[in-house]
Design a protein around this nucleic acid. Sequence first.
DNA 1: ATAATAATAAGAATCCATTATCAATAAGTC
DNA 2: GACTTATTGATAATGGATTCTTATTATTAT
Lengths: 126, 126
Amino acid sequence: MTERATNQKNAILNVLKDAQMPMGVSAILSAGQKVVPSLSQATVYRVLKSMIEKGIADVVQLPGSAPLYEMSGKAHHHFFRCRLCEKMFEIAGCDRFLHKLTPKGFALEEHEMFLFGLCAACKKQS
Amino acid sequence: MTERATNQKNAILNVLKDAQMPMGVSAILSAGQKVVPSLSQATVYRVLKSMIEKGIADVVQLPGSAPLYEMSGKAHHHFFRCRLCEKMFEIAGCDRFLHKLTPKGFALEEHEMFLFGLCAACKKQS
DNA sequence: ATAATAATAAGAATCCATTATCAATAAGTC
DNA sequence: GACTTATTGATAATGGATTCTTATTATTAT
């Protein structure tokens, strides 16, 4: 038989679609359980894996943390994470800078970049 | 009593001093065992931890990999890792670019950056 | 040299993220 | 509705990195 549509898959898909930032497995699990209370961690891992294989979702690897997940299809971007509220903000426009940093004769193929600090809201309060 | 000088500590220190790039625990262990054959993994962890606390060594966290270690005291820098020979090359001069990417009102405090691709030598051969 | 004890080696234990197992459940076909 | 089997839930198992334990070794003060 072919692949089946399930409430669990839909729940996880919608969680990621509604997310304002990349989410980790445990956050996806909690959010998904609000829709499908029985949702289990194993299913989150299974469904995420399948979504990534299909190209529906992408992995975001922060240094020293477990991977986060987001819907794919966004333009290339990076993240600024606020140290206080922990929100993540998308950053674009890296490429024109990075090539200038690449040594002569080198071929730049991929890159990772993360900015950390205070977002505008948290900066005001401090 | 006070801290003692040991061959193990010296070996690990020298391994890091001689290193041309950040090293992982297992690489440090192998290199150290050439000087002190009995050197154990636990000691590498213990000594590295102590070196970091003292500010002698720094941790380099690549996304999705175990941490690497290097001597501290270097000017701020990042790395370009060649996908073929796996060597790492230091990259400097990021700051002037990164502030331009930071949104208005945000305070940029820290950042991580990694470049991947081909180094000049490997690019020639391919 | 000797004694006191910091440091080590070896391996067991822990921790965390992820994967595997398998009986129970439920989507899709008839 | 009944059947086939993909999917799930619960939990055990795994893998890798790191820390703990303990008897042994080796540094340093005396």
